[in-house]
Amino acid sequence: MNAIQMILVVVVAFLAGMEGILDEWEFHQPLVACTLIGLVSGHLSLGVMLGGSLQMIAMGWANIGAAVAPDAALAAVASAIILVQGGQGVSGIGTATGIAIPLAVAGLFLTMIVRTISTAIVHIMDSYAKKGNWRMINVWQWIAVCLQGLRIAIPAAALLAIPSSAVRAALSSMPSWLTEGMTIGGGMVVAVGYAMVINMMASREVWPFFAIGFALAAINDLTLIALGAIGLSLALMYLALEDKAGKGGSSNNAASGTGDPLGDIIDDY
């Protein structure tokens, strides 16, 4: 990579770090971050592929309240840099995915450090609020956001400082059973993210939806969009029928309460 490419990679890392906490534009999602790093470093399709496989793993990682989820931003940025610098091409994706996981944990600690620093920052904001100085509150908000950006940009710059020949040597010294095993592990580790999401959402009434989705997915002709359409329709139908059943039930009760239909029939006799 030349100097301009390296600067662009650090810029992408900065954006990913900001978004890791803001959670708005989603630059920190592996699908976006790896693609952008691939784009600026001239390995677009490689970045896209890595982003796709990491995205599957990071599916259930979400910032909820003060809860700690592994950090997708550092995982995505660092593994993309390693993949590009390692020069192993598509065959390096499995290893890069495996390396991403410990990095996701490291990113977590970095987030905690910045969040602690932010506690001091809001106290500074308090003192400016007393003076009615809104400009400085804006400034400190931006400082806090930039700290989150630097959280990823600095490790990214450090990784880039390692000569690519060293990265290459380290990666090629890994035995094949290890890299193959990591690729297999990468295929299975996706389950953890799904398990996290299911644990959050599962209730008695939604399990049948899960079972139908699982069974239908075996039909390979159904694309993901088709499956989404089926899922959405089922949910809408369920809610609509539930409304109808509620209303219909009450009107039936009212009818049988007065006994009119039955009375009419008897009268006819």
Binding site: G187, Y194, E205, V206, G213, F214, I230, L234, Y238
Partner: peptide, 22 residues
Amino acid sequence: RGASMMGMFVLGALIERWVSIN
């Protein structure tokens, strides 16, 4: 609730499609 239903449906499908064990 609707989102949870659709979410669970898609999760079931994703587990079948994307968790690879051979």
